[in-house]
């Protein structure tokens, strides 16, 4: 694990695993789509609308998981000054924002036929909206300062402070009255959802996680190339070879 903290080794490792992860993403999402849309049964209360679950729930898991990963990477960056941790956090943020947007839109499209409304200001929906704004704030802060080290530190602090929101989202359905249904998969007493729905759900979750990994590897590679460009330009501008890793 610590060997991968070296950017060059990380690049080699990323290049090797990328085709495999991409294959898993396509296969798992393909199977999840076929089973979720054709083979899985309609819900006894919600009818066919339950099929929205197969994109909504895995997106929400990704939105929370990616934010947690950004918070952990930000902690590693602030405490141990791992530059790659900062690169990873920055590369992951727009992907997390994308999954949060999917969660909000698909949730709204599921809420209308199920609850009769596109939106309610209850604990679950509001806390996920706050998560979306935390992502946007993080991305904005990354681009706010001229000095990349300063914006990296400020954004890392925001990511850590904003992490309080993650457990609030997870348990909001238990702590407050809400229209949102409680957890049926990630529970202390095991899933309460039937296997015919759990299988496409887990397939889509696997596909989304693999797709996230593909995007992350591409974005980290891009960021490392950008870092090399910055270093080269500094040298060419005559700043000397020691201001390399800004």
């Amino acid at each position: 694990m610590f060997e991968l903290a070296n950017p060059n080794r990380f690049q080699k490792f990323a290049k090797r695993i990328l085709p495999w992860v991409a294959g898993i993403a396509v296969a798992a999402m393909g199977a999840g789509l076929v089973i979720g849309l054709f083979l899985a049964p309609p819900d006894y209360q919600q009818g066919e609308s339950v099929r929205i679950m197969y994109v909504h729930v895995p997106s929400a898991w990704m939105a929370l998981g990616i934010y947690t990963a950004i918070a952990v990477a930000s902690g590693c960056f602030l405490i141990w000054k791992y530059p790659l941790a900062d690169v990873l956090a920055r590369a992951a943020a727009p992907i997390g924002a994308g999954f949060t947007l999917i969660t909000l839109v698909t949730g709204s499209l599921w809420g209308k036929p199920t609850w009769g409304t596109w939106w309610v200001w209850d604990a679950r929906l509001t806390s996920v909206l706050i998560l979306f704004f935390l992502y946007l704030g993080y991305i904005a802060l990354r681009n706010a300062f001229e000095d990349p080290t300063r914006s990296a530190k400020a954004a890392a602090v925001l990511a850590l402070v904003g992490f309080v929101n993650v457990p609030i989202i997870k348990w909001s359905v238990d702590w407050w009255h809400t229209l949102h249904q409680p957890a049926s998969v990630v529970r202390f007493d095991g899933p309460t959802i039937h296997a015919s729905m759990l299988i496409p759900l887990l397939l889509m979750a696997t596909g989304f996680a693999a797709f996230f990994t593909v995007l992350l590897l591409i974005r980290v590679r891009s960021a490392l190339v950008a870092r090399k460009i910055r270093a080269l330009r500094l040298v060419q501008a005559g700043a000397g070879p020691h201001i390399d890793e800004a």
Binding site: S49, V55, G98, L101, I102, L109, P113, I218
Partner: peptide, 21 residues
Amino acid sequence: GYGEFIWPAYAVAFAVLAALL
């Protein structure tokens, strides 16, 4: 009768993922 909600949900999800890629 839920097609008008299900199909846009899938379309938005995959459009966002494709745009990110």
